[in-house]
Design a protein around this nucleic acid. Structure first.
Lengths: 197, 197
DNA sequence: GTCTATACACCGATAGAC
DNA sequence: GTCTATCGGTGTATAGAC
């Protein structure tokens, strides 16, 4: 894909540019990453496909920009969540939302085959883990360095992973065992820190 | 998509039919489900794209057939795994393989937008859980009906979910916290049933 | 800033030759 | 059983009008 680019490119703070990123998420949730075409994305916000190439060099650039915008939003939501009275449960809840989980699956699949998205995902994962880690360590009085068996990083990873899987399954209509697992996790979390988890 | 079908269809036990399903998995792992086209799949096993329409009515039929074949293989591998000395760890290990996890992510994303694959996935999930459940309940002496906090279904779901997430992350190169979480899970499993988990 | 027009490649699916 | 030939539709990307 060689680009012969002396094309004009629109402003970063443009409304339409943001609309196109909204379109990426809409299409991804409704139809999956395979349907992320300039025609579908632009069409979903009432525009023609050529507008994509006014704001972005390639479709991939639009997708990467959308991923970054969402990553920043998720980090913010997690930071808000863990500032609440029961941060561990909030950490779980953020990941467990089905619509959020469905998008996560799409980007995860994309990351397996697209180098740019893979790099962004690894980077995002590291930032997320750090945010969760500080919270868990501070609230639980558990070693951050992994010297004990119950480490902050193991707990953070376990909580967000289980939340995410339950969200992914719920999104496609699998519910078996979810209630029981949720009860078990709440039980563990409460046991680990009284009422503040 | 209206099919005007008085087409000939090849035998179910044909070698080529199996080759095409191998091609589906190859392409899915290497390029993702978005690249599951008749040309790419047939090409990956050295054939022309029209052969797909000799063995299957539509591309979707080929993908569903591939999913079913794999589902049956996975169920078999899980049954073998839980017959081993440490079934809980084996249950984890089956899900944690990165190549396996990558395919799982693809099919999961596909399930979000394709009704046939969604149905197959729900069905497969139920069968998997049942297989795991019997094993866990028998080995742990833990209630199957969810009457206790530590129920067999919660444990089964937790083990396979955590294994799967670690596999998915490993596939794209995220490893932070994996060692610690693995140690925590092994510790819990050992605690739950001495040396036989 | 958004459009029409256009290029060329690839898509699923069918018909029919061998 | 696998192929060549072909259909209409959609894909990315560019050029240039308004």
């Amino acid at each position: 894909m060689v680009l012969a680019t002396n094309r004009r490119i629109g402003q970063e703070n443009s409304t339409t540019r943001g609309l196109l990123m909204d379109g990426v998420e809409r299409v991804m949730i409704d139809e999956g990453y395979a349907s992320l075409t300039a025609r579908r994305v632009a069409g979903s916000v009432g525009l023609r496909h050529q507008i994509v190439y006014y704001y972005f060099l390639t479709m991939e650039d639009l997708i990467v920009a959308s991923f970054r915008r969402r990553a920043a939003q998720v980090i913010m939501r997690v930071e808000e969540a863990i500032a609440q009275p029961e941060p561990l449960k909030a950490l779980w809840a953020v990941h467990a939302e089905p619509a959020h989980a469905a998008l996560t699956v799409e980007y995860l699949a994309l990351a397996n085959h697209n180098e740019a998205i893979r790099r962004e995902t690894v980077n995002f994962g590291e930032r997320m883990r750090r945010v969760g880690l500080d919270c868990v360590a501070a609230r639980l009085g558990v070693p951050v360095d992994g010297s004990g068996v119950i480490s902050a990083s193991a707990l953070t990873l376990a909580l967000s992973s289980l939340g995410a899987i339950l969200g992914m399954e719920a999104a496609i209509g699998i519910n078996g065992g979810h209630h029981e697992l949720h009860a078990l996790v709440v039980w563990c979390v409460d046991r680990l820190q009284g009422q503040s988890g």
